[in-house]
Design a protein around this nucleic acid. Structure first.
Lengths: 208, 208
DNA sequence: TAGATTGTTAATCGATTAACAATC
DNA sequence: TAGATTGTTAATCGATTAACAATC
């Protein structure tokens, strides 16, 4: 019963289940929804409900076969093949991302690293040479890039996003603290550090 | 009508409104819910609904006074005073965080930077000397740290979190790709890069 | 008064939880 | 058969949206 559209909240939790499964020793054996729940920080009912959207993949009285479940989640998230990524911005954050070991491990290939600062052009980060963002659209003319990561200062974010769109990049993960606009068919997600800290602040203020 | 508990979804959006307001030139004049909505990537109705939880702070037919609105949101989020932060992990991500200019700008003070790697102890990042995590609990005995940021490899995350708890740190922002457990009264939030990319992957898979 | 825009109430929608049947 | 555990249906809860009254 695969193929339907999943609720957004389910989509957001599937990667957590996958992360838990990949932390297990080996790829065999069986896990229960209770164990997945514990390792993912959600409830067991939630796990079963989410997984039921992916089909009937467990065995009653027994649990879920680890390898099969991994496969089902990977397919549901469209993670079968490698996804091509470019990173724009080679400052601290961009470098951290380019060095992030979790990328290859999870099937993301960093295909290019761009910046506008002349001092950084030509330097190499984790085996990838930093190129000038002005050449990006040409560079990527022949390739299909799945995800463009914006790790620039706020002021540059929108123009970089525009370039990514022109380069045919299909989705954007934006770390700059500003809302960027893009054509409706593109998926744009935003991660904002200050927002996270401010949400913590709210809870702190209520706790004491 | 302040002081009540806000819906979590509202709490998550208030920082975005604040970010938009802080991007405006000057701290005076009036903004409409439409403008806030546009600048924050939500709907105007949503903005008005959220702000109505903070009291009657707009003027019908006119809009919201920028300075006053900022103040109300800052108070609602508990951002009046500076919040004390420590960062554990001085690798790429930890360094990026320590160098993040948005911290001071938004009232977060990086009070310490810790690592377990002897090679990094004593080095200085953005004016803060990296100290050994083994000394953290003692270091912080006299201080109240509001937020501990975990920027370590997955394997170290839980033990670092335990140390933060022992050091009396009040909340945790975890960047390691693992669920960490902490006493119920602590607020723990998690930011996971791979999860974000995998959510994008899902949407990519449905788009073509 | 007319136009603009907030704030509130009610309706809708979606997500979570509870209850329990199915079945290993 | 008894125990374990999934999967589904129904109930509850919370969030979003629609409609509109209030008022500058």
């Amino acid at each position: 019963m695969s193929g339907g559209r999943l609720p957004p909240s389910t989509v957001a939790r599937l990667p957590r289940y996958l992360r838990f499964l990949e932390g297990l020793p080996g790829n065999t054996g069986v896990v229960s929804s209770d164990e997945i729940a514990e390792g993912s920080g959600v409830t067991a009912v939630q796990v079963r409900k989410d997984l039921s959207f992916l089909g009937t993949i467990g065995t009653r009285g027994v649990g879920y076969e680890v390898g099969a479940l991994r496969g089902v989640i990977i397919r549901a998230l469209g993670l079968e093949g490698p996804l091509q990524v470019v990173i724009v911005g080679s400052g601290n954050l961009g470098s951290a991302l380019a060095n992030y070991r979790g990328f290859e491990a999870r099937g993301f290939m960093v295909h290019g690293l761009y910046d506008a600062d002349p001092e950084r052009i030509g330097t190499e980060i984790n085996g990838t040479v930093v190129r000038h963002v002005d050449g990006m659209v040409d560079d990527l003319a022949e390739r299909t890039i799945d995800i463009g990561i914006v790790a620039t200062p706020r002021e540059a974010a929108q123009s970089v996003a525009d370039l990514l769109v022109r380069a045919g990049v299909r989705s954007i993960l934006n770390f700059a603290p500003v809302v960027i606009s893009a054509p409706a068919e593109m998926t744009v997600r935003q991660v904002d550090l200050a927002t996270e800290l401010q949400i913590l602040s709210y809870h702190l203020a209520r706790t004491r």
